[in-house]
Amino acid sequence: MNTQIRHDWKKEEIQAIYDQPLLELVYQAATVHREWHKPSEIQVCTLLSVKTGGCPEDCSYCGQAARYHTDIKVQALLPTEKVLEHAQKAKDGGSSRFCMAAAWREVRDNKDFDRVIEMVKGVNDLGLEVCCTLGMLTEEQAVRLQEAGLYAYNHNLDTSESYYDEIISTRKFDQRLDTINNVRKAGITVCSGGIIGLGESNGDRVSMLLTLATMPVHPESVPVNALARVKGTPLENNPKVPIWDMVRMIATARIVMPASIVRLSAGRIEMTEEEQAWCFMAGANSIFTGERETLLVTPNPGLSEDMQMFQNLGLKPLVKENKSACSIV
């Protein structure tokens, strides 16, 4: 098929891909996937919340926002030794990437950031790809993380630029792009995707993919999240995302960003094994695991359950020989 990486996509082109009959779309995506990746290999990533809750932002989907009354307990930044214990356990369980998330609006140059730098160094020394998601980031802060050994930085777009203000009022869409640009300038790989099920239209979903697919360098990692409906947040009563919407989103992302790792992220707890298999067929080649069967603060399948699914489907965890290839949410 000889698929080329393009950065000049038009919205109408991506919309036409997204709107195809489902089986034709999945066939095309699976064909592209096999051209660029080994379809039997799935990267297993572990995501740990190193600082939970108390965030000043008002993201409508997030139970960690301080203004919403949820059951999520605020937790200060974890001790470095504890984080490294989690990282070692993740590596022993087959993860090749370890992502640390802090519920901050932005990184501040203080002792907490110094501790995160130490965590990055420690996880890097274990031979894992190190990823962080810490909120907005300056170029100087990105350079500090890169020098400490950070491999990837996650900063999702969440949704389209035109729908963004319906979901978040405490920061602007352009600020997300600024952070992504700062990460790229520092030589860190980019992990950026979004969430479906926020009340957005299909056009919004396509617009979000267009923003990602027309970046000068595609994100090495594109997480596709289904809304995890957290009680106490404004979106708690949104309907469950239909599986075929997830499949369409993953397949379209695979076709327009063929070299990227497409991550089947939040929402797996509500998917059957058969539904997840469709996502893998459509081009997803990574999943997130979390200790205590959680993904940050929402339910997630356990590692043993995932390994059984891999066995049933003939899949295996991707083993990284080195950190040269390419990550909450």
Rank of each mutant, 00 (worst) to 15 (best):
M1T: 00
E12R: 04
E13I: 07
I17N: 01
I17M: 00
E24Y: 00
V26H: 05
A29H: 01
E41Y: 03
V44T: 07
C45T: 01
T52C: 04
G63H: 09
G63E: 10
A66K: 00
R67L: 06
H69I: 07
T70Q: 08
E85Q: 15
E85C: 03
K91A: 15
G94W: 15
M100Y: 09
M100W: 14
W104V: 14
G122H: 12
V123G: 11
C132P: 14
T133F: 13
L134H: 08
L134T: 11
L134I: 10
E139L: 06
V143P: 04
V143N: 09
Q146P: 03
E147N: 12
A148H: 12
G149H: 05
A152D: 13
S160C: 07
Y164C: 01
I167V: 12
I167N: 02
I168N: 06
F173E: 03
G187V: 06
G194P: 05
V206Q: 06
V206W: 08
L209M: 15
H218M: 14
V222M: 15
P223G: 02
R229K: 13
V230T: 15
N238P: 09
P239F: 15
K240E: 12
I243G: 01
D245S: 07
M246L: 14
M249H: 13
I250W: 08
I261T: 10
R268A: 13
G283F: 07
N285S: 11
S286F: 00
S286L: 04
V297F: 07
T298R: 05
T298L: 09
N300I: 03
P301R: 04
L303K: 12
D306A: 14
D306T: 08
M307L: 15
M309Q: 12
Q311T: 14
